[in-house]
Every structure is written in C-alpha cells, then in structure tokens.
Write a protein that binds this DNA or RNA. Structure first.
Lengths: 174, 174
DNA sequence: GATGGCCTACTCGGATAATGCATGTCCGAGTATCAGCGG
DNA sequence: CCGCTGATACTCGGACATGCATTATCCGAGTAGGCCATC
C-alpha cells in the first residue's frame, strides 16, 4: 500500500517541466542530469505521463518534453493515476464468495459490502489529492519567491555545442 | 497502491472467528479447509493478526485461534494495518531535495509540502475505514438474518476421530 | 483405585525458498536538421 | 542564389533482463492431554 518510487520521480519531472519555458522542450537526458537515476527508466516514467496526456513529447532533433497544459490544471491525483492507473486499494478475488458459498445471504452481498467500504475510503483519498494542483504546491514551496520560468536545457555541454556550431558557421569547417 | 492479497484472506479469517464460539479455538487447519490457499502462508497471515492483538492464539492440543475482542471493537483499519503496517502512501526518498538542492526555498519545504498533501489524504482514508466495524459489516451482510455463532471445527474428520475415541473407551483397544 | 511422571501427538512460530511485479537495460522507429547537388 | 533530396544525428518508443517484496514452504519449539507405573 505504497506509491511506487517512480511517483516521486514523476513529481519532480512535472515540477521541472512546470518551471520550464514551454517553447523549449526538455530532453529526457537533461532531466536525467538532475534526477540521478536510471536514464532509461526515467523515460518509462515520462512515457506514462505522455500517455496520460499530462506531458507532450516531440521526437527528432531539438525534441523533448513539455507540459501538455498549465500547472494550474494538473493536480496530484492525475500524476498518481498516470503512474499507477486507477486507484482501487481493495482488489477482489472472489475469495469471500468462495469461503461462504454455503451462506447465500453472505455470498450475494458480502463482497460488495467490503468493496464499497474501500471504495468510499478511496474516493475520499482521491478527492483530497484532486484538490491539490501542481501550481498551488509550487507556489506554496517557493513561498514569497516569484514562480519564474527557467530553461533547464542550458547545460554546459549544450552551450559548448552551440558555440562550436556558431564558430563553424562563421569560420567554416576548421 | 493496492492492498496485498493477504488482506482479503485476513478479512475472511476475522469473519470466521467473529462467528466462531469463542470458547472453542479454531485451528489454522480448520480455517484452511474453507480458505483454499497455502496452509502455511495462512498461518503467517494469522500470525500478523495475533501480533496486532486482534486474535489470540493458544498452542498445544485442542489449541487454535480466537478473536481477541468482540467484533464490535474491530474495525477495517485495524485489519489493514495489522497486515500492511502503518499506512503511508507517499514514501519520501529525499529525491526532491536532491533535485532542487540549488534552490534552498524549495529544499526546505518542498518535500514537506508533498508529504503533507498525502498525509491528509491518507488520514481521510484511514478515518473512513476506522468507522467500519467488523460487526457492523457482518450485520450488513447477513441482512435480516440473525448473526449466530457457529463451530467451524465440526469437520467430518474431527467427528470421526471423536467417535473412534469414544468407541475405544467403551470397548477397550480393539 | 488414585496420583504422579513421562511420552506422544498436536498446536503455533520463525528461518528458508519460489514467484510476481516494480525497476532497470537494450536496440529499433521516427523526425527535424543540415549538407550537397542541381536548377 | 534558391529549392530539392538524401544522409545523418538526434529524439522518443517498445521489447528484453534484474532485484526486491509478496507469496509459499519447511522444520523446530512449546504445550496439553493421555498412558503407564507406582503407591
């Protein structure tokens, strides 16, 4: 009954993208510079966010990922369910029906009653997380600081590459 | 983010014990006659219930398990936490602090904010389950039927054994 | 016949393997850029 | 000098291994009852 470790990564990714200039996609490699974790697994996480329509991906050169919508429109529940699928803590395996099969009045309702109890609890949990938007949380985190956009792409390598290309275009291939 | 399969077994065990004459302990083998699952694993489940003080165990001949308290005093949350330990859906691995270490105003609060968000949601979930007592659920399941005590121990083998012993005591060892 | 001690059979309890899912890795698919060629 | 074409380098995307947690198993510890010898 814990969220997977991947969720914490997803949360960080969302925050990074939320503070990234949406015109400049962020590559998984750049994200990986900050999240020191398996680069390929990171992509799997991001992929889930893409499938869930929280993040856009663009292939090819200068491609990468951007937030699919504004941070105001993304809440924690969406991030959780992007990774974990629909949350249903109690998974019924018909065990109760089997155990009490001689007692029809239990078989008929027993499982449903337990399911409902957990469904109610789950609903409360979901509703609580639904109210927390990413934007709201970021603002809460930075406090009085203004929430500004960064370009996390500006890593040393990228800059060097850019400079080299500019030099080339000026001096020709040398 | 699912409860383990073991929980469903635990729920059945609790219900069985709740409808069992508390003077007659129920052996794990007897329980296993109904819950067609790994007998030894079943014991591990029951063990957790014992450790959590929901169930009493008595060793030795004619031993077994009984409910430690009345079904009115047992709620779903207790059963869940007996198996899964304290429920905390978001497990912090300091990832956020690491990712945003250059931004002290995030590092300081960021993780706490996320933790709190989930702590709130978890609390609602727990409270909801805490309200559902086992007795209440059983009554709901059986509807108008009276909740009566069974002795689930009355299996064919036990009865046969008993008869054999009685015969022996009458006729001597033959 | 009553009583005490021993013994056996039965119970639970914790250390030890096997399976399933989350995690981690690899190679292929697709696309925007860039260079070269032709007009 | 401009536009087209092809190659290329870079990106994401899905099929293939690994590790840890849940699930399953085995053997040992402890206890209650029964049998037998003794008084």
């Amino acid at each position: 009954m814990k969220l997977t470790k991947g969720f914490e990564q997803a949360a960080c990714i969302i925050v990074l993208l939320a503070t990234q200039d949406p015109n400049i996609p962020l590559t998984s490699l750049e994200i990986n510079k900050r999240l020191k974790c398996s680069p390929t697994y990171l992509r799997k996480i991001i992929r889930k966010l893409v499938v869930s329509k929280l993040v856009n991906s663009v292939s090819g050169n200068n491609g990468g990922f951007t937030l699919a919508t504004s941070a105001e429109n993304i809440n924690l529940l969406q991030v959780v369910e992007a990774l974990e699928g629909p949350i249903e803590t109690f998974s019924d395996t018909e065990l109760i029906s089997e155990v009490f099969k001689e007692f029809p009045f239990i078989t008929d309702h027993g499982t449903a009653i337990l399911k409902n109890a957990f469904a109610q609890a789950d609903q409360l949990w979901r509703d609580s997380l639904k109210k927390k938007t990413v934007h709201q949380l970021i603002k809460e985190a930075v406090g009085d600081e203004k929430v500004s956009l960064y370009n996390w792409n500006h890593s040393a390598e990228k800059r060097d590459l850019l400079i080299r290309k500019v030099m080339n275009s000026i001096h020709g291939n040398d």
